[in-house]
């Protein structure tokens, strides 16, 4: 269980989304822990911790989801698709990837609509506009649309089919997942 591989441009590019997700995860963890201790030892918590934790949570999840999508690690039902004849699998996989491209693009657009209108509504204590929160799904779905096209090209070339064909994901060595 080590994590001593040197950080190269390549490893950073492989896990770009995870670095963002990890940073926000740490922020979320830190503020909630700080709040428990402040309340216990000084009898007064910070009122904005919840909000900061939500922002960290949202960005962390959506950033990591983009990475899971790219590496085809999102959970799916594989069993039925595998029963189809290979030629049909190939055809369907093209169709599915194109549909996913369209769907993700639409989700990206909807997130943008939501974000753009989000300057009016602000979080209760820190008064952070919701724009900054709703930007997370927009970025994530945008990336997922791009990755759908990458998957399509890869499937056409390499003969891997479906949105979630098994391929080794690039987790750290020794990771328990």
């Amino acid at each position: 269980m080590t994590y001593s591989r040197p950080l190269s441009v390549r490893t950073i590019a492989h896990k770009a989304e995870l670095y963002v997700a990890g940073l926000f995860f740490l922020i979320m963890l830190a503020v909630v822990i700080a709040n428990v201790f402040l309340r216990y030892f000084f009898r007064g918590g910070l009122l904005f911790t919840e909000e900061l934790a939500y922002i960290g949570f949202t960005w962390s999840v959506f950033a990591a989801v983009a990475w899971l999508y790219r590496t085809r690690m999102l959970i799916s039902v594989d069993i039925f698709f595998g029963l189809l004849p290979p030629r049909l699998q190939r055809g369907l996989s093209i169709l599915v990837n194109l549909t996913l491209f369209g769907a993700n693009l639409w989700f990206c657009w909807l997130s943008w609509t939501l974000a753009a209108g989000g300057f009016v509504r602000k979080t209760p204590v820190l008064e952070v506009p919701y724009f900054w929160i709703n930007l997370a799904p927009m970025v994530s779905f945008g990336l997922m649309a791009i990755y759908s096209m990458a998957h399509l090209i890869r499937d056409l070339k390499g003969g891997r089919y479906g949105a979630n064909a098994q391929e080794p994901a690039e987790l750290s060595e020794g990771s328990s997942l």
């Binding site: 080590t2 997700a21 990890g22 959506f62 899971l68 328990s176």
Partner: peptide, 23 residues
């Protein structure tokens, strides 16, 4: 200290997978 990266990575990946389905 060298475990920190792997711990965060595993936590983030496991959380996101479950939360995305829940959302």
């Amino acid at each position: 200290w060298r475990h920190v990266g792997a711990i965060i990575e595993e936590s983030v990946v496991a959380t996101a997978g479950v939360m995305f389905i829940i959302c």
